[in-house]
Design a protein around this nucleic acid. Sequence first.
DNA 1: TGGAACACCTACCGGATTGGTAGGATTTAC
DNA 2: GTAAATCCTACCAATCCGGTAGGTGTTCCA
Lengths: 176, 176
Amino acid sequence: MIFSSKAEYGVRLMVELGRQSPGTGRDGQTDDVGQPTSLKAIADAEGLPLAYLEQVVARLRKADLVMSARGAHGGYWLSRGPSEITMYDVVSALEGQIAPMDCFVHDPTDRVVCSHPAEAGRHCATKLLWTRVQGGIVRSLQTTTLADLVEFSRHSEERAERPLTIPLTLTATPES
Amino acid sequence: MIFSSKAEYGVRLMVELGRQSPGTGRDGQTDDVGQPTSLKAIADAEGLPLAYLEQVVARLRKADLVMSARGAHGGYWLSRGPSEITMYDVVSALEGQIAPMDCFVHDPTDRVVCSHPAEAGRHCATKLLWTRVQGGIVRSLQTTTLADLVEFSRHSEERAERPLTIPLTLTATPES
DNA sequence: TGGAACACCTACCGGATTGGTAGGATTTAC
DNA sequence: GTAAATCCTACCAATCCGGTAGGTGTTCCA
C-alpha cells in the first residue's frame, strides 16, 4: 500500500470540513466561516478513533490547511476555499514528501537528484523510472481539488444505495 | 517512500540483464540468449548484497520475467525482449499489488472496489482520489519499458561525467 | 465560579514490515 | 570431486504503523 491510513483519515476529515464550508461555490475571502466543527463530530460521522484523528489534524493545521478554535464550541474549519486546496497540499501535509524511492529527494534548487548519482560512470537508469512515476502521482494529486471530492460526496449522496461504480474518465485497468 | 528497495534493486537487476541481452533491438524469439549472467556479477557491478538479491530475483523468476540455469556457469537472462517488458510487470512482481490504499483491491471481476463501500449512505469520496492516483502510477509504469531504461543507461554511459539532468518530457515540479 | 467541552501535547506499545544475514541443499561444468 | 552457481528456509535488528493513555490549556455557559 502506497499511502498510510493517515492520508485516508486526513482526506476524509478534509472532505467533512469541506461539506460544512459555506463558501463551496464562491471563491471569495470566505471570512464568514460559520460554526467550527469539532473533531468528535467528525470522528463519530466517519467512525474513526478521536485520539488518533487529533494527531492527523495536527499535521493539517501545521500546513495551514485548517484553522482551529479552542475551548467549548471550538473546532476546526478550512483556512481557504475547497477549490483552492489541491489534494497534493493535503496528502503531502499528511504523508510528508511524496517520493517513489528513498534516494529521491529535492535539493534546495528544486531539482530532482539521486543520492547515488553515478554508478560506475553512468547515471542510474532507475531515476528515469521513478521520475516518471512521481510525475504521474503528483499530477493526479495536483489536478484534484478538495472541491472535487466534496462535490463527488454530495453527488453520490443524492442517489444513494446504487451499486459501486466509479464515474471517471480514467478507468483503472492495471492488468494488461 | 512509496516503493521499497526491492523495487530499486530488482529494476537495476533487470536493467543489467537487459544490457547483456543480445536481442535488444530485435523482437524475435531470441532463443540465442548468449551467456547467462550470474547474480554475483550483478551484485558486484551494482554494489548490492548478493544474498538479498537472491530473494529479489526469486520474485522476478516466479513472475516469468527471468529464466535461470543452475550449476557452474549458470545464471539469469530475460525471458523475453526488453521492449516487451513493461515496468508495471517488473514493479508489481517485486512489490505485489500496486494500490494507493489498503481498502483498494481488485475483486475477481477486475473491478475496482472499496472495502468500506458506503459510509452513512454515501460513497467514500476518497475512492475518487485513490482511483486517479492509481491511474497515474499505473499509466507511468505501463508506458515505460525495460528497453527504455536500458537505452537510457547506455545513452548516459556514452557521454559520462556530465552534470545530472534528466532528459524527460515530463519534468517533475511537485512544488506549485 | 465551576464544570463541561473542546483543542493540544507527549509518551508509550503491540504488531507488522523492511532489509538484510546465515546456513545450508542441490545442480552443473570442468 | 570440486568449484560455481541457483535455490530454499529460518532468523534477526531496526523501523514504522495504528492506535491508546493521560494529561494540560482554553473557552463558553449556567
